[in-house]
């Protein structure tokens, strides 16, 4: 039988993936290669931020069931330290060049869409309705990132080389997406969460199809980096949070 604490932890994972990815995309504001891309990056970021808020709001309500009080969306986003973040290592990786940003987005979008399709049928009605709403948005994200993988991969020699390097570099962060821990296993058994292992075949097929169309090679590495969902992060998350959280840390409770 799962506990509210486990459900809270699970919701934080969903929220943190969205929030951290949104923050990374926000770093592109004003730096996009063309105006349309600047707008697209921030639109995707905005969708993810909106989804993060829905997950955080629910997480706060669940937290109130076992703690003295449930934290607000802002408190969860801006007042937790790096070790309390539960996002995948993939989404905290730095923006790098455009190929790096799009490779990260593509790996995540395909997984995210598959995950939400499953969570739409969660026995937890709140999870199901948030997932159904979010999935419609993520369909567009996945289409766009796949387009860019193909465009850059099957582009010039230079864009192809950079895209292949980005795809290779981030590969070791993809294993964690399909590697459940106890929290996920318990929630999946109860039909509340998703057994992420079941997402792997469809993800590999979709990624393989797009990379093939993009004339890119699917990386062959089998050693995978992990730790994000248990709070063990790469050195990049702390720097990102320092920027993201400084306002609330400096002026706690400041309101817009």
């Amino acid at each position: 039988m799962s506990t509210d604490r486990q459900l809270f932890d699970y919701l934080l994972r969903l929220a943190d993936n969205d929030l951290v990815m949104a923050q990374r995309l926000g770093e592109w504001v004003g730096h996009g290669p063309v105006l349309e891309e600047d707008i697209a990056l921030t639109n995707v970021g905005l969708d993810l931020l909106g989804q993060a808020r829905l997950w955080f709001a629910y997480a706060g309500e669940v937290e109130a069931r076992f703690a003295a009080a449930g934290r607000s969306e802002d408190a969860l986003a801006f007042s937790r330290d790096g070790g309390e973040f539960r996002n995948l290592l993939l989404v905290e990786q730095p923006n790098g060049g455009y190929a790096d940003t799009m490779a990260r987005q593509f790996y995540f979008d395909v997984w995210h869409q598959l995950l939400l399709v499953k969570l739409k049928h969660s026995r937890d009605a709140r999870i199901a309705e948030i997932a159904a709403k979010a999935e419609k948005e993520v369909v567009y994200h996945a289409e766009r990132s796949a387009d860019w993988i193909i465009r850059l991969g099957d582009g010039t020699a230079e864009s192809h080389a950079r895209m292949q390097t980005a795809i290779d570099d981030l590969w070791m962060y993809t294993g964690e997406m399909f590697d459940p821990d106890e929290t996920e296993t318990v929630l999946a058994e109860e039909g509340i969460g998703c057994d992420v292992r079941t997402l792997a075949p469809a993800w590999r097929e979709a990624v393989g199809n797009v990379l093939s169309e993009a004339t890119l090679t699917v990386p062959g590495g089998t050693w995978m980096q992990r730790g994000g969902k248990n709070g063990i992060h790469t050195e990049h998350l702390g720097h990102m949070l320092a920027t993201m959280q400084w306002m609330q840390r400096t002026y706690p409770g400041a309101e817009w």
């Binding site: 869409q113 598959l114 399709v117 369909v139 289409e143 469809a202 097929e205 979709a206």
Partner: peptide, 16 residues
């Protein structure tokens, strides 16, 4: 709508 117009099949991602 997006949900009814596009069956969720990511194997079709590369074929718009």
């Amino acid at each position: 709508s997006v949900a009814t117009a596009r069956v969720i099949d990511t194997s079709a991602l590369h074929r718009r």
